[in-house]
Nucleic acid binder design. Structure first.
Lengths: 154, 154
DNA sequence: GAGTGAGATGTTATAGCATAACTCTTAAAA
DNA sequence: TTTTAAGAGTTATGCTATAACATCTCACTC
């Protein structure tokens, strides 16, 4: 990992600390470790991939260890679950409303891009309203080929 | 099950037969049985719920039996998978483009409504285009409270 | 300082979801 | 007739997630 990325991760961990403080939640060493692993990863990680890595620094780790940490991180808007992959990625912007986030999943390279498109969010809200449906959560995930992979494989 | 529903299911099985014929696919007895169970159900069914029911009429059924049938039915646009529930529901309209379907999942009563909202589909397509992303599939699922449950629990 | 309560983590076991890999049968194509 | 391909059977296993109960820690209070 290069210096720049290491610095970016450090900043995001500090931001996470602030967010948790504001929420009256504790970013414990365990939770911080799990978040750090997710931030360091190049792409989405499954719970068991996280577990394998976590075991190296915390030998008592078992599945509930990881799932509890993930639940906490998701509740505090530090991590997203990608439903189609059963995998987890960092949240890019702790300020946005998690209702209004969408994911672009590249089938070629596996990267998941997080976007926040208000036209989509608005269309979803309108459609729900039309049906008398009161949404509490939205899962919006597009599968396909990302720009980079389209360019290299035309 | 009342007569009306039985008739509706019969019609949908006949329609499924036509669709498969057009696709050069075979709606075998097994696949027809699985589709029928999904059509008869009041709500989404998991693969193992289907398996339990299927065993009553086909004692050799095991998980791959069900998953293969489901794969076939999804490919032929007769069934949808609801990602958040790991469960399966019938497709309401075999003509529409599966890219352009959305689900409204009621957290209270468990029903899943399938809608086809072109404003959402359009917004998704635009957002993808903006990113140079070429989508092949869209998963759009809203969790919340349906109109009926809102009315009864104000 | 002993007791209490809440939150975090440890621990064991199991439930729930999905597929790999190989076999057998059957029916149509060559 | 041999070959091939699709469907289904069979066995085993891998992956994903949670239940339930025990223990620890630390702040608070009596």
């Amino acid at each position: 990992m290069n210096t720049k990325k290491r610095q970016a991760i450090k900043e995001r961990l500090e931001e996470a600390e602030r967010v948790c403080d504001e929420n009256g939640a504790q970013l414990t060493e365990l939770r911080r470790s799990v978040l750090s692993l997710i931030l360091e990863a190049d792409g989405p990680l499954t719970a068991y991939q996280l577990l394998d890595q976590l075991k190296e620094i915390r030998k008592t780790a078992v599945p509930p260890t990881v799932y509890r940490a993930l639940d906490f991180l998701i509740e505090n808007r530090l991590v997203h679950k990608v439903e189609q992959l059963n995998a987890f990625i960092p949240c890019n912007d702790t300020h946005h409303d998690h209702h209004d986030v969408q994911f672009l999943i590249c089938d070629k390279c596996g990267t998941v891009a997080e976007i926040e498109d208000h036209a989509i969010a608005h269309a979803l809200a309108e459609a729900a309203k039309k049906q008398g449906f009161r949404p509490s959560k939205a899962v919006v995930e597009l599968d396909g080929i990302c720009a980079a992979c389209s360019a290299s494989n035309p």
